[in-house]
Write a protein that binds this DNA or RNA. Structure first.
Lengths: 124, 124
DNA sequence: CAGTATCCTTAAAGATACTG
DNA sequence: CAGTATCTTTAAGGATACTG
């Protein structure tokens, strides 16, 4: 059974999702973890040019607190910490992909867009 | 043919989509227009408690500039202006719905989430 | 009715330096 | 290696008043 939404509640719930992902660096981090990669803190630092340690740590903390990524710390010196997607976080990937599909439709002609979305009705 | 993405470009493109929608009031406005409703400026003002004229006008301008909503002005006094979704804007609705589906999965158990996303593979 | 124009507040992000 | 702590900058949004 799907939840039932009014305009206000649908907007509020989508905004809640946005707030989970809105950080300046969260999406890059996620796309480096989608696909099952396991990355250390320093790996992500290298993969994401321009990010500061402060921001990387902050965004990871939030993603972890929100249940989107998982943090695994190995008790050794020097420290070793790994990050990976949670099951639920991984499920975000196809949802973001539908946003990418939409943005790709921008310069399609009307008939194509209508066609695409008629196909999409069959999904549910 | 789908566009090909790296982690960086996928993140950048999703961020671009977010920027289109991120305004404090944009989503509420959109959900009041999804479904084909045509709303006047004053209708939206009544439908969205707490919004100021400044913010309503600003968000509508941006949505219009981005090709998501359409503005139709009738040359009469007092003025009459109507807003509706564009074809492309309307196509955003199923994409946002997949975000809602994802957020609804939050408290499902592992097997359900895996199952849901295995089903989802069949879409493309 | 459908907007502008100004001024003000405040969170998010950046720069930089330091540490178990 | 994997972070904190602190200070500064900036842009989004709110309050309020005015208008063709």
């Amino acid at each position: 059974m799907r939840k039932v939404y009014t305009a206000a509640t649908a907007a509020a719930d989508v905004e809640a999702v946005f707030r989970l992902l809105e950080g300046r660096w969260k999406l890059v981090i996620l796309f480096h973890l989608f696909g099952g990669q396991v990355q250390r803190f320093s790996d992500l630092e290298k993969l994401i040019p321009g990010i500061s340690q402060k921001m990387l740590a902050q965004q990871l903390r939030q993603l972890e607190a929100d249940g989107i990524v998982e943090r695994k710390q190995y008790p050794q010196v020097p420290p070793k910490v790994e990050y990976r997607m949670t099951e639920w976080g991984q499920a975000l990937c196809p949802a973001l992909d539908s946003l990418l599909k939409w943005s790709e439709e921008k310069n399609m002609n009307k008939e194509d867009v209508i066609q695409k979305n008629m196909n999409r009705v069959g999904e549910s």
